[in-house]
């Protein structure tokens, strides 16, 4: 179908300090119902959105980190993380929440949604997207 577009949601901001991370995740969730070809990128401070062990109880605000784990159920399973952004922050994949989806084309095998890519690879992914959403 020609009306399926390649959507790329670009996250460059850390959670909690500002609302952008949470409200952009809301767009991704709503957007999933439109059955476009969806990718989500985490760049710069955006990688902090996926850190393990977030606990907001003492702040008294909503902890939305668990919502990322639901993305797989919404068929949002292309989550690109820029390696350079991880490196710059002294982070590795082990610092991030494991995010998976069940592949309906492979007998519902559980697969990793997170793909660590280089700046160059991510730049190419941006280039080949149809619409870039920035928050």
């Amino acid at each position: 179908m020609s009306d399926i577009k390649k959507f790329m949601y670009v996250n460059r901001k850390a959670p909690y300090g500002t609302i952008y991370a949470w409200e952009s995740l809301e767009v991704v969730l709503i957007g999933a119902a439109f059955e476009q070809d969806v990718s989500v990128a985490f760049v710069d401070d955006g990688v902090y959105q996926l850190i393990k062990g977030q606990d907001t109880t003492e702040l008294g605000i909503k902890n939305f980190s668990a919502t990322y784990k639901a993305l797989g159920d919404y068929d949002v399973n292309k989550l690109y993380i820029e390696k350079e952004s991880l490196d710059a922050r002294g982070l590795t994949l082990d610092d991030l929440m494991p995010l998976t989806y069940e592949d309906e084309n492979d007998n519902w095998a559980e697969k990793n949604s997170i793909r660590v890519v280089s700046s160059q690879e991510l730049a190419e992914l941006f280039e080949h997207s149809d619409v870039l959403f920035n928050f």
Binding site: D44, S119, A123
Partner: peptide, 8 residues
């Protein structure tokens, strides 16, 4: 910086 790093 980010733009320049990630622009083709």
């Amino acid at each position: 910086d980010a733009c320049i790093r990630l622009a083709v």
